[in-house]
Structures are given as C-alpha cells and as structure tokens.
Write a protein that binds this DNA or RNA. Sequence first.
DNA 1: CTGTTAGCGCGTTCAA
DNA 2: TTGAACGCGCTAACAG
Lengths: 349, 349
Amino acid sequence: MTIQDIADAVGVSKTTISRYLNGKYNYMSKETRQRIERAIKAADFRPNKSAGSLKSSRSDLIGLVIPDASAMLTPLLISSIIDECTACGRKTIVVSTHDDADKERRLVRELAAHQVDGIITATGGSVPLYQEISQGGIRVIHTDRLPASSPFDGVAVDHYSSSAAATGYIIDQGYRRIVFLLRQSKGGYGTFAPREEGVREVCAARSGEGVVLERMLVSDGEIGDFRRFRQRMRQICLQGDDLPTAVFVAEGLLMGHVICAVNQLRIDLTDRFTFYGYDDTRAAATSVGSVLTLNQPLKQMGAMAARILAGRIDGTVVSQERMHCFLDCAVAYPTVSRTTRLFSEGGSL
Amino acid sequence: MTIQDIADAVGVSKTTISRYLNGKYNYMSKETRQRIERAIKAADFRPNKSAGSLKSSRSDLIGLVIPDASAMLTPLLISSIIDECTACGRKTIVVSTHDDADKERRLVRELAAHQVDGIITATGGSVPLYQEISQGGIRVIHTDRLPASSPFDGVAVDHYSSSAAATGYIIDQGYRRIVFLLRQSKGGYGTFAPREEGVREVCAARSGEGVVLERMLVSDGEIGDFRRFRQRMRQICLQGDDLPTAVFVAEGLLMGHVICAVNQLRIDLTDRFTFYGYDDTRAAATSVGSVLTLNQPLKQMGAMAARILAGRIDGTVVSQERMHCFLDCAVAYPTVSRTTRLFSEGGSL
DNA sequence: CTGTTAGCGCGTTCAA
DNA sequence: TTGAACGCGCTAACAG
C-alpha cells in the first residue's frame, strides 16, 4: 500500500496525498481533504518512513546511546526518553556500548547510517566522535554524564551540590564523623568523583566544628559474601571513637546492601549513628523514612534531554549557546525523629 | 556522501560499490575489491539505510514492544535483546505501551511504517493486531508474556512449573502451611496466575500430608506505610497454628519488602518459618543465601527471542510450526541450613 | 567481471 | 486548487 493506492481510491494524484500527509491543507479543497482523510482512515494507511526519509532527510528516529542498558537505573532514563520521543512523533533506537569506546564509535556511525535526526548520549564519552557526527547535521545532546568541555547541549544531575547539601544537613544534625562509602569497582567512574568532592569540601569547610571524613571502599567480594559485608558495616559503626557517625552511601546498589546489613545487625539509627546518600529504588520505603536519601531525577532528566533535542531538531530551540542543565537530586529528608528506634516493635517473635 | 562518490573515487560504477557493500565479492576482481575497500575505509563511508530499505525492504530494524519500560526488570530483557540484535547487525526501536491497547495498536503500526523487519512483543496482547502486521511480511515473536493460542513464536518463563517445583521442595523440607503472597494491584495480571496455580496444585496434591494453602493480598497502601506491612508480616508469622509456615512471595518487588520486614522484625528463618519465591534482584545476596529464590532467566529469554526472530527473518529458521519455548527459573536453593539463625552475630551493638 | 537501466515510495519543484 | 515529472540513494535484473 502506497500513496498511489490512496490516490487511486480518492481519484486524485499522489502529490495531493503527499500534501495532505504533510499538513499542507491550504493547497486543496475542503472536500478533497475530507475524502482523503476518509480513504486513509479506511485503509489505515501509514506512509513508508524510509521513503520519506530518503527525500526529506528527516527520519523521526532518535538514537539513544547507553553505557549499559542492563544497569538498574536505566529503565527510568530510557522510559522517559522513549515516552517523550513518542509524544512528539518520534521513535527511539537504543544501543548499548558496554563502556567500550570502539563499540560506541561503531554504533554511533551506524545510527547515523540509519539517518537518525538526533542522538542522546549517556556515555559521556568521546566528544570528537559526536562532533564528527554533528557535522552531518545530526543533533547531539548529553544526558546523565556531561563532559564539562563539550560543545553540545546536556542535562545532568548536579551530584556535587546534592552531596554537599545532604552532608551539610547531616552535620547540622550533629554528626561529626562522615564515612564516604563506595564500591571499589565503581571507583574509576567519573560519575562518582563529584559526589565525593561535594562531601569532602563540606567536611573540610566545617572541620573547625570537629568534622572528620573517612573514605572506605567495599569490594564486590565482600558484598558477594554478605557476612563479610555485615562485618564491615559493624566495624564502621564501632570504630567511631565516640564521634557521632554518618555513612554517606555513594551509590544506590550499595545503599540496598547497607540497609539490609543495618537491619540484620539490628543497628538502631540514632544521633550516634546513621547513614544517608544515594537512593536504592526501595530505600525510602523500606528504611521507614528515617534515612536521608538523594533521589536522582532520572525521569525529568531524560524527558528534558529529549525535549531539548526535539527543539533543536524542529528549530524551536535556536540558542547559539550550548545549554548545560544541572538538576538537583530530590532530597528525601528523614520523616522519623532520629532518636526514634528503628525497630520499635522490639524483640523477635 | 553516497555510493556514487565512492564509485567516482575508485573509478567504477555504483553497482560495483553496491555489490561490494552486500558482500557479493565473487562478482568483482580481487583488485577492484581491495581498491573499493580502501576508498570506503578512507572516507569512512556508510550507506544510507533508508535508501537500501526502500529498495530491498529490509531495514535491519527490529521493533521491541514493552508494556512498561520503567519496570524494574525490563533492563535485563531490553539489554539482552539489544545486544543480540546488535550482534547480528540490527538495531532495536523500543516503544512502551503502558498497558494501553490503543497505544499498542498505534505504536505497532508506526513501527511497521518504519519498515521494521520484525517485532518482539512483551505485552502478550492483542494477537489480531500482530496477525495483521505479520500479513505485511513483518515477523513477530512473543517474549515474557505468551498467549497460549498465539500462532507466533514465543519465549517465556514457565512460571507454573517453577513455582510448583519450588513449593514441592519447600514441602519436602517439612513446611506445611504455605502462604501465597501477592500485591493486590498485581492481582489482575495473567502473569501471576500460573505462579499461583503452580503453588496451588502442589499444595492440593499433597494435602494428604497436611499441607494447607492460604492466599494473601497486600495493598500498595500497606507497603507505602511500611509499619503496616511489617505488622502484616508479623501476623502471618504468628497465625501459623503451630504449622511450619513458608510464605511464597509471588513477585520480586514484594520480595524486597518482605526481606526488609523480616529483617526489621528480627524474625529468624527456621524450620518453623521461612519465605521463598520470586527474586528481588538483590534478594539472593542480601538474604544470606538462606532463602530459596526463583530467578527469571530474563537475559536468556530476551536473547533467545531475538535469535529466533533473526532466524525467521534470515530464513535460517524455517519450521512451519510455531515455536513456543518455556524456560525454567534458575532456582537458588538455600545454602545455609534452615536451622541456622539468620542473625548469628547476635545482639544489637 | 562490470556497467546500464529501471524502479523502491515519497517530497518537491514547476506548470496548468 | 491540482497534477506531471524528477530525483533522493540504493538494489537488482539484465546486458555486455
């Protein structure tokens, strides 16, 4: 089924059908328009996008480049981008680089071969590659990871400020020993540096109030053998030198483990000990609201990136300047007094 | 840059370039071939996929239709499909229906307009829609949700057998009261019916051994106000009438909550009380291996679906019969004796 | 082994 | 207000 078929059915030429499909209604009589509308609806006709793309060089396709599509938080990012693209009549081709620069290069070029109108990259990688791509008229925007020097638009989370603000709040609550906790395997990521920096700078600035900072790495082996991890958490708790301790959990997956360990160790959260930091998806619910969590606004981030990109493609957004947007984390402050015992039901059954 | 440019550079006609690009090397001299290879590499040329698709009606595009791209387990499914498609030179367009049949209809038609070679649907919905699509030469395969009557290929998890096997094992361990636990909001889903059926049939078959089955629904409100959920779990635990109780947790998200509640309530897992069931991603790790979990083989499922679909498209898979594959869950049996106290470190700090 | 030719389905002049 | 004709970049039949 092609526009020719519709044209034959209506009794006009395919040019008129094409005009109708592209919304150029002032080039035809109202009657013709209605007859075309009926015919298209009756046949449930959709024009071949490849053919259209060939001529107009707009494919209504967006490329989404993800470092690892199986990571736990990606669904929020992916789904918001998909939904936003769908809302403005576009489809999303998703590719996953597995943090391999060569693969990214190859995949991005292939996306270009598919005539995507724009690319959303969450890899934070290789600006030159995207510059080359953008030469070909393909719009580019960063999300999640945003190289400071990139000439492209980008939307990211302000981990630095969010971590700093949360830490400031915790110090205000009287905690003096801050433990920055991170999985060893994550240590290399640039994403985590700003989180640590935010914590470190606030601690340094308030060292006059007796604030000390420790850095601790947890190996994957420790987590795999959960008893070792619990032991580790116990030590952190005990080594406080009588300083009120707050553990900053730098990453969501780790947060889940910390919550479980603390529960199993029956550690009560008091003004002597607490933890806070990046959200496991369930953390807020399962920690009974007694823990301060930083929730990354991934859905807003994705939607905003998609919207800005769409604006660039449509020519709605015309700023010559690159746009770098930083979103703060949504902070879930403890709703339970910190002197409330977490296990108020008491005793085992 | 088009094949014409390459042709000019090499000094041959574009047909020859096209042949080279499609791997028809036996239609050209070795020397021509090498010169073309160099020219293409030098220019880093990629042929326009839209143009190719227009002529050959193969786009190397696969449509992936997901009920809800933001659901927690989708990344495993999506990523395996994406990777598998990438591996065989295809790209994946992902769309999300939000369980809306009209939207699904619209999206699937739009995918067809983009000339996708095949569609992987995880919605389990509206077979007629896909039949219509398949009329147009687009291959279709189900994954995750597989309507029994569907004429299309499909790969899914055998929830019935998996639940039954796990329950049988639990009964063998001496538990006599089985509590089937499910979130109320999930009650409507067909996906959960086989899980319940598996549990029910085994319990019925072994009622002679004194096995009884209870069904319990948890409301989202209860989970939101976590104290209420804990209270609920406590009641379940206490109402055992002295029967050794095992709670079957029908769904991963719920499993996370159950683990937390059990931890916070300091309920030890013994031969009087345990829980088992569908895996929260972290359940196996954080429950110290003392809980039997059913892990859905989502990665294998996605990869297999993608591979079968690719086979159909390439003509490698030629079976006239539809192929319905059911994968068993990977069962993680408890590695800790069930009489071992979960909190062996004892006491709070 | 290579080139010529004719479309694929659509958008876009230009002429009517 | 409409239509004829051309070309987008590529593939494939056919001819050489």
